[in-house]
Design a protein around this nucleic acid. Structure first.
Length: 771
DNA sequence: TACCGAGTATTTTTT
DNA sequence: ATACTCGGTA
């Protein structure tokens, strides 16, 4: 008897859901029902009695994906799913390490360094060791450490054939020692430490291997070598691993993701037949054709071709704007049209390559009173004031946390300057103490301000003995001086609001904890936990019912809250739930779908990003990113670019992205600004009539605007020139315009000539001919 | 010794 | 635009 949720699945989907034994690799194209396959398989396993909820491990990359999975399984089955191990790689490793913290040589309440913390950690370490930060930029060191960990390498196993890495390796060693002293771990350490734990302890390994009968991996193409080894180690003889992925959507190579894992998986897990999901249920024909055609330019692919039976739909609209502000105006104008035509704002997404691009779009949306929601960017827990408050809390929880100490020792200002802190660091280093503990060993008057600080922290610690978590958070905000500080700051009110929000978040956290730990662990149909309990009667590791998992930890609510804050860096932002236009980077759009999608900033240098041009296979990864962007769209897709864009406070000029060339013309409909303005978009440009031929570039913002309203200025040949225009120079030959700058007699133009050199020529002098 | 202002470098994407 | 460093001043 197959449960009804198999109905409506196509054949390959059904095959993936009902694999009986062994492992499988599912090559799931964009929009081919990947999540549905994963969740239906879990529901199928449970309801058919093939596995109990405790025998299933499902791993994703983002908290969002994990939550989505839980939600969808919850819709199919009325069980308590909390006991199931569904989570991110980092979340699950965190869970294991807490559980086996002794064997992993970690304090029970170890805290997690995020990327920012890690960088300041590295800086502090290097200063302590007097390493020249000009020769070895902290960022490089951080990257070195992280990539080593991503490959599963400790400092003593990093390859160093020519001795070039020696200083980095030494720093890596010192870094790990210091982390251990302070009782903190970074993201990579979570995974590496868990892997080593599994490698080292046969009993723990065997325990998990026999426990997890089914492992399901989402976005398998994004796994790095460390995660792959972890999966291999976790799966025992009788474990079936279902890996679902799409090599065309591999967009995280920059952080160590290794698509080759798909090939390794085929071999290591003895996959006889790859299941291909090629029917796309998401996008209309034009969108799919365009995406297929684009991605076919990539050389290394496992190969598949998506098809749909939902009709061709509308052409993709392409809009080239002279300036970023007009691009934004055009996008928002179109958005407004859709909203007027009763498209829900939440079905509309505006995507961009990098977070910095969101600002201008937000501005325009604000101006036109359209609700929107920005994902990513500065997350709640990344805000400075929140990090400050959390640092106080972290120091209270663990006084060895030097990162937290340094962050707040003089914030708000307590007249503790660099000199005092250097002395403190010296003492701490000599006596091998944490900074906090070293305060008592300081001599002379320098120690006064520091002693007072220490006293304050200890006072707070005494006080919070009698308060619950929200009270603690509130108390810290007041007693630390943060409240006072932000009250007196000009822009402090918003920050104060955020701090209040943190108190609210903490009480929400407590409430959630209470609810989930009060649910009895009863899984109805196929509970088979008794079987597990006998696996290793003589071994110290015993299976703990997951609903009891948290109870078995001695973590204070504060410690739990802090872990939660660093692991889920504030996915839930204010304004959720409301119908709002969705703004996000393409990376964070992966896995999502929308009726209407705008991909903005399609410019060479921006997308593909200039940094990618010098990386091996960089452009291919960018192309996959474009593929991901395009395949988010169900019904309508819009692509836009701007010739001039303000970036890092400067105006930069770009040509259109090569990706636009790589889409078949038949799928596209190109719009020009003039065309649009004259039709129905005049409003976006404040009623100004724009004539594309008369535009001038390279002017300052204000000049540009004044020129738009009155186009009589600039009668020189700057008028006729445009970025990307081919020109001929008597002496230098043919070239292409890269940028224009200045006005009047000051006007100059950057041209790249055929001999490959770029020259800056004065327009008043140089005779240029358009070709 | 601390603070303030000027000058300089910096930015892809995320757990 | 923003974060961070450096040097001069209080």
């Amino acid at each position: 008897m197959n449960p009804e949720f198999l109905d409506g699945l196509n054949d390959p989907q059904k095959a993936a859901v009902t694999i009986e034994n062994g492992s499988a690799l599912v090559l799931a194209g964009a929009g081919s029902g990947k999540t549905r396959v994963l969740t239906t398989r879990i529901a199928w396993l449970l309801s058919m009695g093939k596995a109990s909820s405790q025998e299933i491990l499902a791993v994703t990359f983002t908290n969002k994906a994990a939550k989505e999975m839980l939600l969808r399984i919850g819709l199919m089955l009325p069980y308590n799913l909390r006991s199931m191990w569904i989570g991110t790689f980092h979340g699950l490793c965190n869970r294991m390490l807490r559980h086996h913290h002794e064997q992993a040589a970690l304090p029970e309440s170890f805290q997690i360094l995020d990327t920012q913390d890690q960088l300041s950690f590295v800086k502090r370490l290097m200063k302590n060791l007097s390493v020249d930060t000009d020769k070895f930029p902290p960022r490089q060191v951080q990257k070195f450490i992280n990539s080593a960990k991503e490959e599963g390498l400790r400092y003593d196993s990093v390859d160093d054939p020519n001795g070039f890495n020696r200083p980095y390796i030494e720093l890596y060693e010192a870094y790990d020692i210091q982390c251990q002293k302070e009782g903190v771990v970074d993201f990579g350490e979570l995974l590496l430490r868990t892997l080593e734990l599994l490698q080292r302890s046969e009993s723990i390994r065997k325990h998990y291997q026999s426990r997890f009968k089914h492992i399901l991996v989402d976005e398998f193409q994004d796994t790095n070598s460390l995660q792959y080894s972890w999966l291999k180690l976790l799966s025992g003889r009788s474990t079936g691993v279902l890996a679902v992925g799409d090599d065309d959507q591999s967009i995280y190579a920059f952080r160590g993701a290794n698509v080759a894992n798909m090939q390794y998986f085929e071999k290591d897990f003895k996959i006889t037949k790859i299941i291909r999901l090629e029917q796309n249920y998401r996008s209309h024909g034009f969108i799919l054709d365009a995406a297929n055609s684009l991605i076919s330019r990539n050389t290394s692919r496992l190969g598949k071709n998506l098809w749909t039976d939902s009709g061709m739909g509308e052409c993709i609209r392409v809009f080239e704007s002279p300036e970023d502000v007009f691009e934004a105006a055009w996008v928002v104008d179109e958005v407004k049209d859709f909203i007027n035509m009763e498209t829900s704002p939440s079905d509309i997404a505006i995507l961009y390559r990098s977070n910095a691009q969101s600002r201008i779009l937000e501005h325009e949306l604000n101006k036109r009173n359209i609700d929107y929601r920005v994902y990513g960017g500065l997350r709640f827990y990344d805000r400075a004031e929140i990090k400050h408050a959390l640092a106080y809390l972290r120091l209270l929880e663990n006084q060895n946390d030097d990162t937290a100490f340094m962050r707040i020792v003089n914030f708000p200002s307590r007249k503790i300057g660099n000199r005092s802190l250097e002395q403190l660091q010296d003492v701490a280093k000599t006596l091998d103490l944490s900074l906090f503990d070293a305060i008592d060993n300081l001599e002379g008057k320098v120690s006064l301000a520091l002693s007072k600080f220490k006293e304050m922290i200890e006072d707070i610690r005494n006080e919070i003995n009698f308060s619950n978590l929200p009270e603690t958070v509130d108390l810290v905000i007041r007693r630390s001086g943060l409240e006072e500080y932000y009250l007196s700051e000009k822009n402090g009110s918003e920050r104060l609001e955020n701090l209040k929000e943190l108190v609210t978040a903490s009480s929400g956290f407590i409430a959630e904890e209470k609810i989930s730990s009060s649910i009895p662990s009863n899984f109805g149909i196929s509970r088979r936990s008794s079987k597990n309990e006998n696996i290793e009667p003589n071994k110290p590791v015993t299976l703990v019912d997951e609903s009891e998992f948290d109870k078995n930890l001695n973590l204070t609510p504060l410690a739990k809250f802090l872990v939660n804050a660093s692991l889920e860096s504030g996915e839930s932002q204010a304004g959720a739930g409301k119908a709002a236009v969705q703004l996000m980077t393409i990376h964070s759009a992966k896995g999502l779908e929308f009726d209407v999608v705008f991909v903005t900033g399609l410019e060479e240098g921006l997308f593909p990003h200039e940094n990618s041009l010098s990386e091996i296979n960089g452009v291919e990864e960018e192309r996959r990113l474009m593929y991901v962007a395009m395949t988010r769209a169900k019904k309508r897709l819009f692509l836009s670019s701007a010739q001039a864009r303000r970036l890092h406070g400067q105006v930069r000029y770009h040509q259109q992205s090569r990706f636009l060339e790589e889409i078949p013309k038949e799928c596209l409909k190109k719009l020009s600004m003039q065309h649009d303005t004259n039709l129905n978009h005049a409003s976006a440009f404040n009623g100004r009539k724009l004539n594309v031929e008369n535009q001038t570039y390279g002017l300052t913002h204000n000049e540009l605007h004044s020129n738009f309203s009155s186009n009589e200025k600039n009668s020189n040949n700057l008028n006729a020139l445009k970025v990307g225009q081919y020109v001929r120079h008597q002496r230098f030959g043919d070239g292409i315009v890269l940028a224009l700058q200045g006005t009047g007699s000051e006007a100059s133009v950057h041209i790249k000539f055929e001999q490959n050199d770029v020259r800056c020529l004065s327009l008043a002098i140089a005779k240029l001919e358009k070709i």
